[in-house]
């Protein structure tokens, strides 16, 4: 990772360094922040859960932009970045789902509940797993880029519609009224700071990972074409 020689990659190196440093600082803040009044130490999972979910959604938004850009300019690099965004997004969204479930078990007594945000996130996860499966199924690079750009765009458009449908569906189905936002009635200043630092760290790490993944793909592609 440190042996990147091209001058342009200095940015990537800096981003990785900054992201990791902030992550360490954020980790310290997260452990130093006071426990939540209602949930106690359990609330600390929030410092991992919220930034992961945020990066997940950010990544899919980035995939939407790169996909649309690919369809306009048809540059293979844009397709690579879209794919990289989706891969990173799935990792972080998976992390958000797992931490969410770990938090839900002691809090609500169940690992899974049909809460709108949770359900939308699961649907989104399925959409982008489909994206990666589609990519692996197509050998022709141009066709693969076009097809996955279409899936990337349709998938992102689906996010708000999915969310609305699941939210209304729940609201008319009054059996439980659990919401991930409950339990955060009051947040201490130290908690807000810890959360913000972690959000920043995760966002910067997202950019760093995106650039790294793009570079790897580019070099991989070059190796194949030179062989």
């Amino acid at each position: 990772m440190q042996k990147i020689q091209k001058p342009g990659d200095l940015v990537t190196t800096l981003l990785v360094g900054l992201g990791l440093t902030l992550l360490a600082v954020g980790f310290y803040f997260a452990l130093a922040a006071p426990p939540d009044a209602n949930q106690g130490y359990l609330a600390r999972i929030m410092y991992l859960h919220v930034p992961s979910a945020w990066v997940g959604y950010l990544a899919f938004f980035s995939a939407l932009l790169y996909s649309a850009a690919y369809l306009i300019w048809r540059r293979p690099g844009l397709d690579r970045m879209a794919a990289a965004s989706v891969e990173i997004g799935l990792v972080f969204l998976g992390l958000a789902l797992v931490t969410g479930m770990l938090w839900a078990r002691p809090t609500w007594g169940v690992y899974w509940t049909w809460e709108p945000r949770l359900t939308t996130t699961a649907i989104l996860f399925a959409v982008y797993v489909g994206y990666l499966v589609l990519r692996s199924a197509i050998e022709d690079p141009d066709l693969r880029a076009k097809a996955s750009a279409a899936v990337g765009i349709l998938g992102a458009i689906n996010v708000p519609i999915s969310y609305m449908s699941v939210k209304w569906w729940r609201s008319l189905h009054q059996t439980q009224s659990l919401d991930l936002t409950t339990g955060k009635v009051h947040m201490d200043g130290a908690m807000v700071l810890a959360l913000l630092v972690n959000l920043a760290a995760f966002s910067i790490l997202f950019l760093a990972l995106l650039r790294l993944r793009g570079l790897l793909e580019k070099r991989g592609g070059k190796l194949v074409s030179e062989a």
């Binding site: 489909g130 589609l134 998938g155 449908s165 569906w169």
Partner: peptide, 14 residues
């Protein structure tokens, strides 16, 4: 079906 089903969730729900 793999690509189709996640996208049509809103249709089925509504």
């Amino acid at each position: 079906p793999l690509l189709l089903f996640p996208l049509v969730v809103p249709v089925v729900l509504a």
